[in-house]
Design a protein around this nucleic acid. Structure first.
Lengths: 191, 191
DNA sequence: GATCTAATTCGACAATTATCTAATTAGATA
DNA sequence: TATCTAATTAGATAATTGTCGAATTAGATC
């Protein structure tokens, strides 16, 4: 709330600018601050619609609001634009997003060859777990696999089908009954 | 097609990056080029979906494609990213968008006060026309107006209701029958 | 040529977003 | 207080976009 640059992330920023009307609004604000009415008439949209777009731009930190009487004056925040432009040049910022929400899987990337196979299988238990999870996610939930099918699916990523099959069962990622396997819900996987 | 920077405009660029999956793909490509399969497994989406996203990124000039056998290797185009970052700092680029598709109306902006009223009414016929068009667009098509309503609508933008009412009728922007007015289709307006 | 594999295209469906009208809020003014 | 005005919020609908499975294409391999 007191952030000079609101906590808007890269995605919020791009979404804010990914619409013709909002791009136009930004364009109109490059010249000077403007009221909602004025903007609505200039882009030929109704005021509520413009209000909605301005809220998104504001959320992204791209415009600021100054209230005078009951007229709301919106102004472009060129600082934000400049800051984002700089961010865009830092590749790491995108890389961070790539692993957001899958932090556990981050490490897996180091073990993959360019064509998506496993280079190696680490020795320590802690490092193994995310790799097994990654592998287990290649099985569909809600169907069964014969042992041959399980082996095939594993071998597409690593030659050592025995080890991986055994370990996935051990972690309760796959269940086995006789010669039939199926994937278990991720919530039940054990460390 | 042979454009080094594809003819993608700003909007295409922002749209391309305005989705979490595509931002992740870009993130994964910061490290090195990758195949569709690999990307699909890393972002946990099906190949057709990833293919679709990559097409959008390609359209925006953000990725390039190198084909080897039937494997498609996508790589990040950092040049485009840099070029766009630079563009973002040039306010005029946004301003251009603001008037795209309404080139005729561009001139009108010079005659508007901050609160959307007309500052003046130019003397030359050529300059008047777009202003009258702008004003006429404030009337809804498909309903009728009493003369008093027409006057009100005009006066919200300029005090001289007589002149504007007369001129709009003259240009066939508004039609009159007795004391009732209505807006005519834009195609029929005359110069 | 037949088959296999990686990728794309197609068509359907789901989810998200844009837009409008109507209702509401908040400030200014009578 | 009542009223007017500018803006926002709510709710409904329309338009756009994302996702998937199925079908197709294009290159490689047998």
């Amino acid at each position: 709330m007191t952030d000079p640059l609101p906590s808007a992330d890269l995605l919020t920023f791009f979404k804010a600018l990914a619409h013709e009307s909002r791009l136009k609004l930004v364009g109109l604000l490059t010249e000077r601050e403007r009221s909602v009415q004025e903007l609505a008439s200039l882009v030929a949209l109704k005021e509520p619609t413009v209000s909605h777009h301005l809220a998104m731009l504001k959320e992204a930190g791209l415009v600021s609001l100054r209230q005078d009487g009951n007229t709301h004056w919106y102004a472009l925040e060129t600082k934000t634009l400049a800051a984002r432009a700089k961010t865009m040049l830092m590749k790491e910022k995108f890389a961070e997003l790539a692993v957001a929400g899958q932090s556990e899987d981050k490490a897996v990337l180091n073990y993959l060859t360019p064509d998506g196979r496993l280079k190696a299988f680490p020795a320590t238990q802690k490092k193994r777990r995310p790799i097994l999870a990654w592998l287990a996610r290649h099985f569909d939930e809600g169907r069964t696999y014969s042992e041959a099918e399980v082996n095939e699916t594993i071998e597409r990523r690593h030659h050592d089908r025995e080890t991986f099959r055994r370990e996935m069962v051990g972690h309760k990622m796959l269940a086995r009954k006789g010669g039939t396997y199926w994937r278990l819900p991720e919530a039940e996987w054990v460390s």
